[in-house]
């Protein structure tokens, strides 16, 4: 059992990464990765919400009527996100201003529904909690990698601080505007998947 829980936590970080292998949550991965800071905040919020929603659904899993299970999952997620957003507004106003639209975006994140339906409906609360944390962190890791590259080459900054020295610009270096555009995020995610498949030969499709 302990081994299974371990798997639930570790699998989604690399071998069964939600973005790279399950191809879930791509939409938000494109939207929030132009800069590092929102990417990290988004990654953390998704981690917390997936873990909490997983636990709740896992506790309810034997009582949920099969025909309306998706809508029940959606209600749980939406209620959780709303409550978290209300609490942030009251106690951490700055953070909530920064998150603005992303809080709402969490509800539509496919990872949430995907994990609830595929994992929490069949497993106990503790395993589901670990699965949520694992998937959230796996998702966050990809966001951070993509955001790092996009912010560095797109704006010459990291976390908003200038890292490309001014003398580069004077020598004719220009920020790559394409990096900030959403399509580039897709290309970068593609590159990461390429690298990931090269390392995990058994995932390659013929």
């Amino acid at each position: 059992m302990a081994n299974k829980n371990n798997e639930a936590l570790k699998q989604p970080m690399w071998v069964n990464n939600p973005v790279l292998v399950q191809i879930l949550g791509i939409c938000s991965a494109l939207a929030v990765t132009a800069q590092l800071k929102p990417a990290i905040v988004m990654g953390l919020s998704v981690t917390i919400i997936v873990a909490m929603a997983n636990v709740i659904i896992s506790l309810l899993r034997n009582t949920i009527p099969n025909r309306i299970r998706i809508i029940i999952q959606l209600v749980v997620v939406a209620a959780l996100v709303t409550i978290v957003s209300e609490i942030l507004k009251a106690f951490a106003y700055d953070v909530s201003v920064q998150l603005s639209v992303y809080v709402g975006l969490i509800i539509t994140n496919c990872i949430l529904m995907g994990r609830l339906e595929a994992f929490a409906m069949q497993n106990g609360p503790w395993a589901s909690f670990l699965d949520g944390i694992g998937n959230g962190l796996g998702y966050a890791a990809i966001l951070i990698v993509v955001a790092f590259v996009r912010e560095l080459f797109g704006s010459g900054t990291l976390f908003g601080f200038q890292v490309v020295p001014q003398c580069f610009y004077e020598a004719g270096y220009l920020n790559n505007g394409l990096m900030i555009m959403p399509p580039m995020a897709l290309v970068l995610v593609g590159c990461v998947i390429w690298f990931h498949r090269a390392k995990n030969k058994d995932l390659q499709e013929n």
Partner: peptide
């Protein structure tokens, strides 16, 4: 858990609980 009555009651209770929360 698959009967109609149960499904409708479940949905109703869920809505009320979430709304109050």
């Amino acid at each position: 858990t698959n009967s109609n009555v149960y499904t409708i009651l479940y949905a109703a209770v869920m809505v009320v609980v979430v709304a109050f929360l």
